[in-house]
Simulated assay, not measured.
Amino acid sequence: MAADPSPTPKAKGPASYFPSIERTYGRPVEEWLDLVRARGPEAHMATVSWLKAEHGLGHGHANALVAHVRAEAPGA
């Protein structure tokens, strides 16, 4: 059987930032997502600000992590 010639689909939305987050900050993205999950139902921008202030993430990376976790929540 021949190999599937179609390319692997690229991640879209917040997940498209994950490879860059791992390269830039040297931690698996799942660690970052767990940190965001642990913050609970805090406001989106409060969590983004915390990631930037406490962990040195850029705004786009922090926002992508928070958006991804918020999208996991039921009713999101």
Rank of each mutant, 00 (worst) to 15 (best):
A2M: 05
A2G: 04
A3Y: 13
D4N: 09
D4A: 00
D4C: 06
S6D: 07
S6N: 03
S6E: 08
S6I: 02
T8C: 13
T8W: 12
P9E: 05
A11N: 00
K12H: 01
K12M: 07
G13T: 03
G13Y: 03
P14G: 00
A15E: 01
A15L: 05
Y17M: 01
Y17E: 04
F18P: 06
P19H: 03
S20L: 10
S20D: 13
S20N: 07
E22M: 10
R23I: 05
T24E: 02
T24N: 04
Y25Q: 09
Y25L: 12
P28W: 11
P28D: 15
V29W: 10
E30D: 15
E31M: 13
E31A: 10
W32F: 04
W32N: 00
L33T: 00
D34F: 07
L35Q: 09
A38I: 04
A38M: 05
R39G: 14
R39A: 15
G40D: 07
G40N: 09
G40Q: 10
P41N: 15
P41L: 14
P41D: 15
P41F: 15
A43L: 09
A46L: 15
A46G: 09
T47I: 15
T47R: 12
T47C: 13
S49M: 15
L51M: 12
K52W: 06
E54L: 07
H55L: 10
H55Q: 11
H55M: 09
G58W: 03
G60C: 02
H61V: 06
A62E: 05
A62R: 05
A62T: 08
N63H: 13
A64C: 08
A64H: 06
A64I: 01
A64F: 06
L65T: 08
A67C: 07
A67S: 14
A67W: 08
V69F: 11
R70P: 04
R70K: 11
A71V: 00
P74M: 10
G75T: 02
G75C: 08
